[in-house]
Design a protein around this nucleic acid. Structure first.
Lengths: 167, 167
DNA sequence: GTTGATGCAAAGAGTTTGCACGTGT
DNA sequence: ACACGTGCAAACTCTTTGCATCAAC
């Protein structure tokens, strides 16, 4: 009764693959796609509960993994666990060592590097990912300033995402 | 009585930082530095036990982390947990989707990409890492063949590492 | 009505930690 | 001898799974 109907992009993506569009699943997908903060499962869970208080953490995990398997989300391993990325389109990442934010950055010089590697090794390069790290624009300003906790803003407050690049 | 003495590179590296050179610590460092298979803590543990049967898993974890903090090893996050890399020098990685091996590859086209990112974003790029994936040379041969378990060879057999690139 | 999805709780896997004892320097 | 390192076991965190129930189609 609260689930989506035809015409909804999420609905169509799921139904086209023979997957059911349940309310938790739909919300989880929407939330992850609506931010570029690469949230953890727990963070998604906390956000989901604000609109669907009965949803369990297990359901969040099951859906995140399933959506990733079907290519609607991408998974990233992190020292603290898995992170989820709502944009499966090719792009790279920049992690700010000061504030901990993970920014999406456009694919800069992919093809040439991949070709070079394939030529020199005989490996068949199917995919690649570049992880940059350093200090982001807003953290270059302040001195040795407070490492603001990464996604606390998103988890706790509104769904306004910082939004740096949309790849 | 069984630990190293002056003149040993590992001994010097540790002592120079005020760290003690115990037998487990020395062996752990040597094992990780001697392979490019990026072993997990459990894998290192299994290898350590073959020469020092009394060493505990906790000690392996403590030493791996401590050695990483002091820059003698590098840590990598993986879906299955942490991996350890004995070569802190800059290099990239290629993960074979068939056999699961993680190969070291030489740094191919770093500088230009970093400069481009800095110029277009205002970010100060301090480091980067490229993760390639695909099928390695030896797996391109066989058809849709058996995903040989990653580092079983090293864990179970001799310390002969496949050795692809030495960066 | 079927079949897959969910909630709950329990189980797993990887990693960390408290404490008393052992050991490098 | 002193301080750090170690073994053991318990604790913790993140993630997965079994099962009865519920709901999308």
């Amino acid at each position: 009764m609260k689930g989506g109907r035809a015409g909804d992009p999420a609905h169509d993506s799921l139904r086209a693959r023979g997957l059911r569009l349940t309310a938790p699943r739909r919300l989880i997908l929407e939330l992850v796609q609506a931010t570029d903060l690469h949230p953890s499962a727990t963070t998604v869970y906390q956000r989901v509960r604000r609109r669907l208080p009965a949803v369990s953490l297990a359901t969040v995990y099951r859906n995140l993994r399933m959506l990733a398997v079907h290519g609607l989300l991408a998974e990233r391993a992190d020292a603290a666990g898995m992170r989820f990325d709502g944009r499966p389109s090719p792009h790279d990442h920049f992690t700010c060592v000061v504030c901990g934010r993970i920014y999406d950055v456009p694919p800069l010089a992919a093809a040439g590097v991949r070709r070079a590697l394939g030529a020199s090794t005989g490996f068949e390069v199917l995919d690649h990912r570049i992880e940059f790290s350093g200090r982001c624009a807003r953290c270059r300003g302040r001195k040795g300033r407070s490492p603001r906790t990464k996604e606390d803003l998103w988890r706790a407050k509104s769904s306004k995402a910082p939004g740096v690049f949309r790849t």
